[in-house]
Nucleic acid binder design. Structure first.
Lengths: 127, 127
DNA sequence: TCAAACCCTCACACTTATGTGATGGTCAAG
DNA sequence: CTTGACCATCACATAAGTGTGAGGGTTTGA
C-alpha cells in the first residue's frame, strides 16, 4: 500500500508518516518510481507509535523500545548491550509510574463524574 | 514558602512554576513585596501536575481536571455544565486508553527484559 | 491526451513545554 | 552600606510534534 492508504487506515497525516520515518520509527521501502510502499504490518505499527506518543513517550524512546515489541520474539543478543538494557529498565519503570499516575487521576475524575451524577439524580427526585 | 523552596521540594524549576501559574494551573498569592507565597498543599499539587504532564496531558486539559481532584470533595454544580461533563468523560476515556496502551507496551518491554535475562542465564550455565 | 489524484522533497510556521539571560527590586548578614 | 541570595518581569531560544504550501514528478481514468 502507498502512503495515502496507510494514512487513511491509521488516521495519521502523510506528513507525520514521513516524520516517523525521518525519526527512524518506521522504514518504508520504495517502489521503482520512488513512492513509499508499506505492507499490512505497518498499520499496527503506526497505531502503536501513536499510542505511545499520545502517552507521552518521545520518538527517541519509542525508537528504542519498538524493536523489543516484535511479534516473533527474536532476541538479538548482539543488540542487547548493557546500556541498552539499562535504558529499557529505566523506561519500563517510567512507564509504570505513568500508569500509576494516570490511573490515580482517571479514577478521581471518574469518581467526580459519578458523584455529580448521583447529585443530579438526587436533585431530580427531591426538588 | 517562596518559589525557591517550592522549586527545591518539587524538583521543578522556578521558570516552570511561573509557567504553570501563567497557564492557570496554580494560583499563588503574593506577599506585600510582590513575592509569590505558597503553602504546603502546593507541593502535592505541583507533583500531580508534573505527573500528568509526564503522562502526556497538555496543560489545557490538566487545568480542566484539576478542580475535580480536590480533597474535600466539594462539587460545585454551578461549575458542572453539560459541556464540562462531556469533556471530562472524554478525557476519562482517553486516559483509560493511554493506560491500556502504556500497560501493553510496558508489559512487552518487561517480557523482553525477562527473556534476555533468561537467555543470559542459559548462556552462562551452558557454554 | 488531459485532468484529477496521487506521490516526492523542501521549507517555513506554529504550539507546547522548557531553558537562559537581561535588568532590576528586596532583604538579611557582615 | 554593601554584598549575596533571593525575588520579579520580559524576552529570546530550542526541541518536538505537527500543519501547510510550493514546486515538480507519476499514474489513472474519461
Amino acid at each position: 500500500m502507498r502512503i495515502g492508504e496507510l494514512s487513511k487506515r491509521t488516521g495519521t497525516s502523510r506528513r507525520l508518516l514521513r516524520y516517523y520515518e525521518e525519526q527512524g520509527l518506521i522504514v518504508a521501502d520504495r517502489c521503482a518510481n520512488g513512492y513509499r510502499s508499506y505492507d499490512e504490518r505497518f498499520v499496527d505499527r503506526v497505531l502503536q507509535i501513536r499510542g505511545l506518543l499520545e502517552a507521552g513517550l518521545p520518538t527517541r524512546i519509542i525508537k528504542q523500545i519498538l524493536p523489543c515489541l516484535d511479534k516473533p520474539r527474536v532476541i538479538h543478543f548482539s543488540d542487547a548491550t548493557p546500556e541498552m538494557l539499562a535504558t529499557l529498565e529505566r523506561e519500563r519503570d517510567r512507564m509504570t509510574e505513568r500508569i500509576a499516575c494516570l490511573t490515580r487521576n482517571r479514577d478521581a475524575v471518574a469518581e467526580y463524574l459519578d458523584a455529580v451524577r448521583a447529585g443530579d439524580r438526587q436533585a431530580a427526585t427531591t426538588p
